[in-house]
Design a protein around this nucleic acid. Structure first.
Length: 269
DNA sequence: CGCATGGCCCTTA
DNA sequence: TTAAGGGCCATGC
């Protein structure tokens, strides 16, 4: 560790005063000092946030969001966090306003720039989590889809393991990855919470369960000749008279249909 | 059609 | 270094 990355406290305070006139804020209760500490990279910060799963604690570094913790107990969170990341974690009274707004927008399914700090994870874990962020709100993809998309078709099970270690659940939407047979599958916070989040995102889980039992895996349109995952936003626009369903991509392609370029249910042959 | 089983790949102890 | 086990999958009754 170099001095540049680990300045003495007195040096840090001097920096803060110079940068943001923090001497005034230092005295204000619940002031901005911890926020500035994070901006300087001297510590990571966390703040409370309310979600569909109840209260969360969300942490971030200068690079981006680092962790989402379920619950309100800061002791356990800080201990686990500092143990795992080896960095000091400071409480903030609230999120920086832009960050708070961006998180809220993202959770509503709107566009928002959110940076993630996935440092400390393996290349495989990073690839898995980054791919998960591409799945739009309201849509689902199988574990095997993630594996294929990141170029590791055989690593389906390892994808599940990596998602199970997702340090930033909800914001990195690992809940949108389900089993190929239509079952919802497991989740960091348990299957019940996965279903809660997905319903809140507008996923018709009951209808999908009915289809799963009927072995329906894909929806297609006989006017376009394209097949999709049932939750694909294109598939949801298919009108009843033109809806065709398939149990496998082999069956769909044998019938002359090609995979959707948006949800990519298979490689085009 | 529901369930069990072997197989696969990555991480960790 | 190695082996065990995990948010899975395809197959075979």
């Amino acid at each position: 560790m170099t001095e540049r990355h680990d300045p003495t406290p007195s040096t840090a305070r001097a920096l803060l005063r110079d940068l943001h006139g923090a001497s005034r804020q230092e005295r204000a209760p619940g002031g901005l000092l911890p926020t500035v500490l994070v901006e300087l990279g001297l510590a990571d910060g966390y703040f409370p946030f309310t979600s569909v799963l109840g209260p969360l604690l969300i942490a971030y570094s200068r690079v981006g969001l680092t962790a989402v913790w379920r619950g309100t107990d800061p002791e356990a969170f800080v201990a686990a966090y500092e143990q795992r990341r080896g960095r000091s974690l400071r409480a903030l009274p609230a999120a920086p306003p832009e960050l708070d707004a961006a998180i809220a927008r993202r959770l509503r399914g709107e566009r928002a720039t959110l940076r993630f700090d996935l440092g400390g994870l393996s290349d495989f874990e990073r690839a898995t989590l980054e791919k998960a962020t591409e799945i739009p709100r309201g849509e689902l993809r199988p574990y095997a889809w993630i594996a294929r998309e990141i170029g590791r078709s055989g690593a389906v099970r390892a994808v599940g393991s990596a998602l199970g270690r997702n340090p930033i659940p909800l914001l990195i939407p690992c809940h949108r990855i389900v089993r190929s047979d239509g079952r919802v599958g497991d989740y960091v916070f348990g299957t019940a919470d996965k279903e809660t989040v997905l319903r809140a995102e507008g996923v018709a889980l009951d209808a999908l369960a009915v289809e799963a039992r009927a072995r329906i895996r894909y929806h297609a349109s006989d006017t376009t000749g394209i097949y999709c995952f049932p939750t694909c936003h294109h598939a949801r626009r298919i009108t009843a008279p033109h809806l065709v369903t398939f149990p496998s991509d082999a069956a769909a392609q044998a019938a002359g249909y090609r995979p959707c370029k948006s949800c990519r249910p298979a490689i085009a042959s």
